[in-house]
Every structure is written in structure tokens, then in C-alpha cells.
Simulated assay, not measured.
Amino acid sequence: MSDRHVDQVADRVHTIVADIFDSLDRILGSVVACYRASGSFACADLAGVRPEIFACLSRAHDVVAGAGVIVAPGVLADRRRWLEWWQAPPEQDPIFLDVDLDPESLDFYDYTHAEWFAVPEHTRRRHIVGPYVDYGGTDTYMLTFTAPAEVNGRFLGVVGADVRAATFEALLLGVLAASPTTITLVNGEDRVVATNSPRLPAGSLLPQPAPHRLPLTGSPWSIVTTTGDRAISSL
């Protein structure tokens, strides 16, 4: 696939993804520093990570809807499980996400089975999940970016950021609208991440396999193009 519009979309996607993971790397560095500085890593020590979490939410306020640290079971001395997760409502200070982490509760949130946690734990590599409906938080289509945190081979958990699918698509509007053909960014399940077609809302599945596909390095996504459905001039 050789098309300057496709190349422009690919470059823009790479830039956005890199910026998000750069912010996560700063949080990750703070987690590792706090862990190494603590004789017995406890929940209170995670307060030392909050400045980087808040900085991420502030720096990328128009992009990141939530960010934080999800700790692997057994890592903290005083808590079996913990989410140091903060959300960024428009024009408000960060709000702590309080979830039920009691295994005996009917509302127990066992995050260890979530793809955004389990895959980085297994692969020890960055991962992107979505779009998926975030029923537990915003009830909107969300993308979740996570990266593993580890020290000397010990898995501490993941650092992560939530980005609304609509926000991510909006960041691509300029390059998508410039294309005379339909360009669609899809995940590994052929679910739409972003597109310039009014017939393919974010989160929907491609109606049929795409003949032209460009895998993007550094993400689980691909760009597909079709000529039968012209792109709209603006979204």
C-alpha cells in the first residue's frame, strides 16, 4: 500500500501513540523509584506517584481521560490489590476512581483478568485495548494504553491511560478528511478505531475483510483502505 494519505495517517497515529506512552513512561519511572526507595512497599508509598499521574492528566488533558497504576496482587505490604487510578473530568481536579476490591463482594473488580492487565503481565510489553465500552467508568467507547512495571524481574503491575475513542478519532480528523478514499484504522479484531467514513462508527466491525491493509508497528492496529465508499470532506 503506497498512498501519501495513508502515510500521513500512519505518521499521525504513531505520534499520538508515542506521546501517550511517553507520559506513561514518566509514571512508570516514578513507580520504580518509589518501590526502590521503600523498605516495605505499601499503599501510602503510591502517593509519591501521584504528581506524575496528575502531570499526565494535566499535560494531556484534552486526550487522556484517566491514568494511574494498577498494582499486581501481593506487591503491596498492606493491600492485596490496589488501583491508584485518577480520572480527569473537564475543568475539574482529578478524581480518584474508587472500585470494590473485596473478593467476597458481589461487585468485586478483578482486574487481573482484564486484557489491559493480563497481556502486559504475560508479555512484559506495552499493550493497547479497544475500542470497548467502559461500563465500569464512563459508559463510552474507550481505548486503554498500558505498560508493565517491573523491578529486577518482579512484576509490579501496569501503568495505564484511558483515551476516549471519540477523542482519538478527533486527533486524526485533519489527515483523515484530506483523503479522497476511505481510510479506516482498525484493531486486531477489525473493530474500527477511527475512520473518515460516516458508515463506520468507532467500535463497529468492518462489514467485510479489507483487501488493502497496512499493519502499524508499535501498535496492534492496521490501516485499511476502500474505494467504494468515498470519504466525507469533514467529520
Results as ranks from 00 to 15, higher is better:
Asn152Ser: 06
Gly160Phe: 02
Ala161His: 04
Leu156Tyr: 02
Arg124Leu: 09
Val158Arg: 04
Ala149Ser: 12
Pro148Lys: 05
Glu150Met: 05
Thr144Glu: 12
Ala114Phe: 10
Thr112Glu: 15
Arg126Cys: 09
Thr140His: 14
Ala165Thr: 04
Glu150Asn: 04
Val163Tyr: 08
Met142Lys: 09
Ala118Asn: 07
Tyr141Pro: 15
Val129Glu: 04
Val119Trp: 14
Gly136Cys: 01
Tyr109Ile: 04
His113Ile: 12
Gly130Cys: 12
Ala166Asp: 13
Ile128Gly: 06
Val159Glu: 11
Asp134Val: 13
His122Val: 10
Asn152Phe: 00
Glu121His: 02
Arg154Trp: 00
Gly160Asp: 08
Val163Lys: 07
Pro131Asn: 10
Leu156His: 04
Glu150Trp: 03
Gly136Asn: 15
Gly153Lys: 06
Phe155Glu: 02
Tyr141Gly: 08
Arg125Asp: 01
Thr123Lys: 10
Ala149Thr: 02
His113Asn: 09
Val133Asp: 13
Glu115Asn: 13
Val133Trp: 03
Gly157Phe: 03
Gly153Cys: 09
Asp139Cys: 15
Val158Lys: 03
Tyr132Glu: 11
Thr146Phe: 10
Asn152Gly: 00
Leu143Arg: 00
Met142Asp: 07
Ala147Ile: 00
Glu150Thr: 01
Phe155Leu: 02
Met142Glu: 11
Gly130Lys: 02
Arg164Tyr: 13
Tyr141Ala: 12
Tyr135Ile: 13
Glu115Ser: 13
Glu115Pro: 10
Asp139Val: 15
Tyr135Lys: 14
Trp116Met: 03
Arg124Ile: 03
Phe117Pro: 03
Thr123Gly: 10
Leu156Phe: 00
Val129Asp: 02
Val119Leu: 09
Tyr135His: 13
Pro148Val: 05
Ala165Tyr: 06
Gly137Pro: 00
His122Thr: 13
Ala166Leu: 10
Tyr132Asp: 13
Trp116Phe: 12
Arg164Ala: 15
Arg125Thr: 11
Arg126Tyr: 11
Leu143Gly: 06
Val119Cys: 12
Val119Gln: 09
Tyr141Val: 14
Glu150Ser: 11
Phe145His: 08
Val158Thr: 08
Phe145Pro: 11
Pro131Ala: 09
Glu121Ala: 06
Ala166Tyr: 02
Asp162Gln: 09
Gly157His: 03
Phe145Gln: 08
Thr146Asp: 08
His122Ile: 04
Arg126Glu: 07
Arg124Asp: 05
Val159Tyr: 02
Thr144Ala: 10
Pro120Gln: 01
Val133Ala: 01
Val151Asn: 11
Phe155Trp: 04
Pro148Gln: 08
Leu156Pro: 05
Asp139Ile: 11
Phe155Cys: 01
Gly137Lys: 07
Glu115His: 15
Met142Asn: 08
Phe155Thr: 02
Leu143Glu: 04
Tyr111Arg: 02
Tyr135Trp: 12
